[in-house]
């Protein structure tokens, strides 16, 4: 645990004290990206995105499959380099191949398929992979593994085989593998898409805790609207562009607009909206508890 708090402190210390505008964790400046670059009239997976993510922020990126949200994620840690424009991570330009190593050290990424991210047959060896790559001394790797597994609540599985774990547990191991590198940013590229509700809950709880307790910048790519509610900011992607940006509540209040991007409201919000449309004066609600409260309040007033 200790290392992580020091990392986040370091991240804050890294911010120039005199500056009014601190160095953002991630900055996109008019970024375009295309997978087939030599054709005329190409389709841009990411098409002119300008976006700033502050250090310590918890941002959900929403959008349909194929809206460019995964491409956006891969542009952050230099797995992809922009065709046009500029992406910087704590001021480092991802276009500079020499910086890729530094960038990946500060921006870790967890992927979609829990089966395709582990390199080793034992949990601790897998978590060790990242620190080994960046040349962490042996004794420290052990400490990092202990801390990372504790942070994701998987300490007792240190010597287990990943293939025998549940989907949620596998993803928590993948998160631990990233934590052991001690990044400042954690990107989750649809990491909950293949999990059952229990596994999704486990991963979301870990991610929220990292954000709250360690000040980790979290970028959560997802198509589960309910998950976006747990973030402090939501960004909606549509055809490679950022079309909405605000708090999740603000975003979900603009239901008609969301619909044009083929996104749906969280179910509670949807029901709420239908009641409002039918003329019942209920307040906004985003989950079952809030929905029940809003309805009861409205009934009492009525």
């Amino acid at each position: 645990m200790e290392e992580f708090t020091t990392v986040s402190e370091a991240a804050e210390e890294g911010v120039p004290a005199q500056a009014e505008a601190p160095v953002p964790a991630v900055r996109f400046e008019n970024v375009k990206y295309t997978y087939d670059d030599d054709e005329e009239g190409t389709v841009f997976a990411v098409n002119g995105v300008t976006l700033t993510i502050r250090a310590g922020e918890f941002v959900a990126v929403l959008g349909r499959n194929g809206s460019g949200k995964s491409t956006l994620a891969k542009l952050i840690n230099a797995l992809l380099r922009p065709t046009e424009g500029k992406v910087t991570v704590f001021g480092l330009d991802t276009a500079d191949a020499k910086k890729a190593f530094e960038i990946r050290k500060s921006a870790g990424m967890v992927f979609q398929n829990p089966d395709n991210q582990t390199v080793a047959s034992v949990v601790e060896d897998d978590v060790a992979f990242g620190p080994e790559n960046i040349g962490v001394p042996r004794e420290e790797i052990g400490e990092r593994i202990t801390a990372a597994l504790e942070a994701v609540g998987m300490t007792e599985f240190r010597h287990a085989t990943p293939s025998r774990l549940s989907g949620g547990q596998k993803q928590r191991i993948a998160i631990a593998g990233v934590l052991a590198i001690q990044p400042k940013i954690m990107i989750l590229d649809e990491s909950t898409a293949m999990l059952d509700p229990k596994g999704r809950r486990e991963v979301m709880d870990v991610v929220k805790k990292l954000n709250k307790e360690q000040g980790m910048t979290v970028i959560l790519i997802t198509h589960f609207m309910e998950e976006a509610l747990e973030a402090e900011r939501a960004v909606v992607m549509h055809r490679g562009e950022v079309v909405m940006d605000g708090t999740p509540e603000e975003i979900f209040a603009r239901a008609d607009e969301l619909e044009t991007y083929n996104l749906t409201l969280p179910r509670a919000a949807y029901i709420c909206r239908r009641l409002q449309e039918a003329g019942m004066p209920v307040g906004n609600a985003f989950n079952a508890e809030e929905l029940a409260e809003a309805i009861c309040a409205s009934l009492q007033k009525g």
Binding site: K105, F129, G135, P137, I181
Partner: peptide
């Protein structure tokens, strides 16, 4: 598909060959 995913995952975890690598065990 798995190989491609794994390649990305290894890159993202700073894999860059044997150079400068330490060993935990």
């Amino acid at each position: 598909r798995r190989a491609e995913d794994l390649g990305d995952a290894m890159d993202a975890r700073c894999y860059s060959g044997a150079k400068g690598r330490t060993k935990y065990k």
